[in-house]
């Protein structure tokens, strides 16, 4: 165990030193001056459209878009808040704690519903439910489970089919995975039973939604739990074999959030970008956005959205986190 942590530390340290990014793209490089640096956990493909429309309207601005994991967004922002102008992440809890700890610059004159912003600093701009994605082939003639309870029963009924072929987030590595897991655990004990069942089936653990969907499409796994539906939806269109299930018992919806770094050197441009982002994601008239829009709470199918409130910091408490992770490991890592 100790070696394991040491290894993670070394890898992380190495990553920080080398500034390794999952992806790194510059927009409108022709523009002079220092580019607006956005650190984000959102894949470039999904976010590019938003940046491109912004630079189209602001041709003098160049943007550098840096993609990394949710945990890394938090760590890098804490380490070097001046190095980035805007931080975007799907891990609402980490983002809220960054703002709480004073890393964000409040924006003026942005009208946004109170539930979708915190301290006029942290702004939510998507509504993305966590989903169960299954490969229909695994359920051949059987009904596809619509809730966690049905999923548990289905997994228990045919362990042979699912052994080694179920996947979920490694909550130790993924901030978003941890957020989903803690919110699920808070909502129902079913979560822990599902984890135990998946643990018994030698569940595979992933850092990111993207890899889970990759393995679903190439058949390595047949069921993924708590996948980001926005990522899944993008792939499912081309993969008839996959089906996205929004669990009917208790749904968990995450809002992607962004804030301007308090040490930004371009507060005006960063503020404008935030306004652009919020306006774009709030308007329902937009044709086909690459990222799901922010849904008004009262409309739609009534998925419970994780609230932007200080309570998000509860599970980030080191004692609480250690306790949760140990329970999670007990349940999921049984060998």
């Amino acid at each position: 165990m100790r070696y394991y942590f040491a290894l993670i530390l070394i890898v992380l340290g190495h990553a920080t030193l080398a500034q390794e990014w999952e992806d790194r793209r510059s927009f409108n490089e022709a523009a002079e001056g220092r580019p607006l640096r956005i650190i984000s956990s959102t894949d470039t493909d999904l976010f590019a459209q938003i940046i491109e429309t912004f630079v189209a309207q602001n041709p003098t601005v160049s943007i550098e878009y840096l993609v990394t994991g949710t945990t890394a967004v938090d760590k890098r922002m804490r380490a070097r808040p001046a190095a980035f102008d805007i931080a975007i992440s799907s891990a609402m809890d980490l983002q809220l704690k960054l703002v709480n700890d004073g890393f964000a610059l409040p924006l003026k004159g942005v009208s946004h519903p109170p539930w979708a912003q915190w301290r006029h600093s942290l702004y939510a701009f998507t509504s993305e439910p966590a989903a169960i994605v299954v490969n229909r082939s695994a359920f051949a003639d059987l009904p596809i489970p619509q809730s966690r309870q049905e999923l548990i029963e289905a997994l228990r009924a045919r362990p042979g089919v699912f052994r080694g072929k179920v996947g979920t987030y490694d909550v130790r590595a993924s901030g978003l995975g941890y957020l989903f897991a803690t919110q699920d655990a808070r909502a129902s004990e079913t979560f822990w039973r599902l984890m135990e069942v998946m643990g018994a089936l030698d569940a595979r653990l992933y850092c990111c939604s993207g890899e889970m969907i990759d393995d679903l499409t190439n058949g390595k796994i047949v069921m993924a739990y708590n996948v980001l539906s926005s990522y899944a939806a993008a792939r499912v269109e081309s993969q008839d074999a996959l089906e996205i299930i929004y669990p009917s018992d208790f749904p968990t919806t995450m809002m992607r959030t962004a804030f301007v770094s308090k040490d930004t050197q371009a507060p005006d441009i960063a503020g404008n970008f935030m306004r652009h982002l919020i306006a774009l994601q709030s308007s329902s008239a937009d044709g086909k956005p690459s990222l799901p829009a922010l849904k008004l709470r009262e409309t739609g199918i009534g998925r419970a959205t994780i609230a932007l409130e200080p309570a998000l910091m509860t599970f980030l408490d080191s004692l609480k986190r250690a306790r949760f992770l140990s329970e999670w490991e007990d349940a999921l890592i049984q060998n």
């Binding site: 200080p310 509860t314 004692l319 609480k320 306790r323």
Partner: peptide, 19 residues
């Protein structure tokens, strides 16, 4: 020390006070 979720939840204010 297992901080209850409600402990921080009850500290929500309209002005989003920091905790």
């Amino acid at each position: 020390v297992d901080i209850p979720y409600a402990a921080f939840s009850m500290l929500s204010t309209p002005a989003d006070d920091r905790v």
